[in-house]
Design a protein around this nucleic acid. Structure first.
Lengths: 110, 110
DNA sequence: GTTTATTATCGTAATAATACGATAAAAAAC
DNA sequence: GTTTTTTATCGTATTATTACGATAATAAAC
């Protein structure tokens, strides 16, 4: 019976939560790290580094892609996943802004 | 059969993922916002603002507490939840550092 | 003391996420 | 063309998360 309640929250809250969720698994963090170090970011290289089955890595890649943190392209012969800087920066600055807003609101409490 | 594989990842990756997960739900983001605006942060006030049942809000509060993003105290008569700035700042700067590291690694790719 | 209001926990149901083997699809190598 | 390599998707099992009603525990009000 518990359906998703996300429509009950503010759009920007849902958006931030959604982006943070994309990074809320060590595998996906490790994937971003790995991709940042590769000139040719073939998925296979990622699979070799991440200690999970190929299908699972592909699944995590898909999740990152759907949230816009990486983008896949086919440069000539090899499929290529790359960091999508626009959205990575957006995530980073949204969190920063959020924390800053918290600070500005802050009343003396406990 | 799929047990948790988090031990296969680096400690700092697991730690960052864990903190981000704590904020990966709109309710928990809304709770932090709410708490930041209150002088007396009684849980009841939070329950009135968050569009979820009291038991669910309490559950989210517990999650935030266990990750150290808020701390609960009993000031005299009322139970009091407050933002835990140390860990909120830690989360913020860990993500920043992570993004900065990605940037520094960045090879020309696609 | 008793009653009322507040918060936490329990039990449980539904949903989502994680993980992987098997297999399909696509491209590269031959 | 065929074979091999690479990646995506399907099906499915397991685990984790989300959600809430009911109830217990705690504190305040009386």
């Amino acid at each position: 019976m518990p359906k998703s309640k996300s429509h009950l929250f503010k759009k920007n809250e849902v958006h931030l939560a959604d982006l943070l969720k994309a990074l809320s698994h060590p595998a996906r963090i490790a994937i971003l790290s790995t991709l940042s170090k590769r000139t040719e970011c073939v998925c296979g290289e990622v699979v070799n580094v991440i200690p999970l089955a190929q299908a699972t890595v592909s699944q995590h890649l898909k999740a990152l892609k759907s949230k816009g943190l990486i983008k896949g392209e086919f440069e000539g012969q090899k499929s290529c996943y790359c960091l999508d800087w626009d959205n990575i920066e957006e995530l980073s600055s949204l969190l920063q802004d959020f924390v800053t807003t918290l600070k500005n609101n802050q009343q003396r409490c406990c």
